[in-house]
Nucleic acid binder design. Sequence first.
DNA 1: AGACAAACCTGTCTGC
DNA 2: TGCAGACAGGTTTGTC
Length: 279
Amino acid sequence: MPELPEVETVRRSLAPAFGARVEQVRYSGLPLRLRKKLDLRAQRRAAEGAGIEGARRLGKYLLVDLQDREWAILVHLGMSGRLRIMSAAEPEPPHTHVVWALADGRELRFSDPRRFGQVDLVQRGAERDHPALAKLGIDPLEDPLDGPTLYELMHPSRQAIKAFLLDQRKVAGIGNIYASEALWMAQIRPSARANTVSKARAVRLAEAIPAVLRRALTKGGTSLKDFIAADGRTGEFAEYLQVYGRDGGDCLRDDCDGVIRRQVTQGRATFYCPGCQPR
DNA sequence: AGACAAACCTGTCTGC
DNA sequence: TGCAGACAGGTTTGTC
């Protein structure tokens, strides 16, 4: 579910918890990503008694920093994960797996029906030693993504450009929705091999990626079904999607009369306009 | 090395 | 109404 704009929306919505002190960590005991269980003792040692200092984002990963502690909490939302700040008096959402009870009567709750998400610890100052973060590529909102750099990254790859964009080792944070959106914006066919895309189009793509991510972020992300931020708000960007989920609809480019097509590649739905995204 | 399918899960929607 | 099947915003693993 959540791609970079959604994760950044969650990060920002965590602000009301900054400064609060973690009193207790609880865990459902069910395995999360890769059938791995949370190391509850380590989580407790790291977080209990500590204040929440702030939150950072690397690609689709969230890092919640703990005041005066060596550790930060690492959270990945997978497909269906949610982080919510709620009053302890409110009923827990279904499939709540990790709870950080705060000293002020609120709780930070991680729920995730599909359990593709991840909760772990990373050592502050050595974040990149964590295997999940070690190979992450450029974050298009934090680092400048210029055309020539992207072109150089694309050059050795024979992958379809859409698969390339989904590879977090190349550019971190793009998922299935924004890959289709960025390629439509840059007028590149998703099936085009990365190394066959012209330099001019690579430059357009390097502009399109941060543009679409930023635009989505201003709308609080895309809530197709169940994405919500830590404050319970949904994202509005679904209304502004140009191709994703619009198969059979008219292409929204001014001078194009094409019809949006849906194609399954690598098991993922891909949307494009055959008219203005030529081979 | 690199490309692809399958696997990990539950919930929801569609069509019969 | 019930049920089977398809599909979902992500990532890893195994196979070719």
